[in-house]
Amino acid sequence: MHDTLAISRRNALWGLVPALIVLLLFFSAFGIFFLSSLQASGEAGGLTMAHYARYLGSPSERDVLWRTLWISTELTLGSLIIGYPMAYVIVRSASSGWRRFLMLSLVVTFLSGTVTRAYAWLIILGNSGLINTFLRKTGFTDAPVHLIYNETGVFISLLHFVLPFFVLTMMAPLKNISRSLEDAAVNLGASRWRSFFLVTLPLSVPGIVAASSLTFAVALSSFLFPLVLGGGRVRMAANAIYELIFTRFDLPLASAGATVFLVLSLFFVWVFGMLQRAVQLGPSVRQQ
């Protein structure tokens, strides 16, 4: 940054006052929340780690954590497989018509609300919904295919939710890969696919890591879609915490669980950050 553009430290700090107030508010809320996880139950008061022991010791809670990590990984991979071609075509398309159509589908998805989409999936995937009715009428099946109130429905609806995050984050890094590089590869004899695997893909890796990082983080904190589409059978971490408060009324355990979950999320943010730095420094990939 040019030194001439820098503003004085005083002004900079004053400018941050509103944000600092917000942060104060935010972290106070968390402070109290965090404290409640350490509070010993009973009148004795004082701090204890017992709730953490309970949480981490409970096989069902641990199972929820594993499941959350696993589904988030599947979702990230799914977004990569479907989302990368979409981002690539948007960036490289010569036809502005198709490009606008693809972008439109992304924008519309963002604007269409989450509860409404969850409801839409219930009807589309339900036993007497769009897909099953279609299959029945065309004679493919007699019995309904169970697509909701199980992991399938949760996965489909979540994939739909996280996909735009992946695609939008993937577009900028792809745009930074100069088209001449791909043209040069073809010009030197590579087929489209070889040009993709030998030139485009290696150069997209940092972008893929960045997009995956965001997608994974969003997937981890899923709450609504497992709630609506899971029928109580699919609990991800956020749902488990919700239940601990509103069904089991065990606030200390819930906040212990939330803290563990938070640490886990931050851990993965850190891991992805390390990964991104590793792929950026590895080969000397500085765009000319």
């Binding site: 479907i82 989302g83 071609p85 979409m86 690539y88 075509v89 948007i90 159509f101 693809l102 589908s105 992304l106 519309v108 998805t109 269409s112 409404t116 989409r117 409801y119 839409a120 999936w121 009807i123 589309i124 769009l130 739909h160 996909l163 735009p164 695609v167």
Partner: peptide, 20 residues
Amino acid sequence: SFFMLALLAALFLLLPVVFI
């Protein structure tokens, strides 16, 4: 095939919105 995948993704995205 890339283009078809992209198109499929877009249709997948539009499905619930158009449906609802």
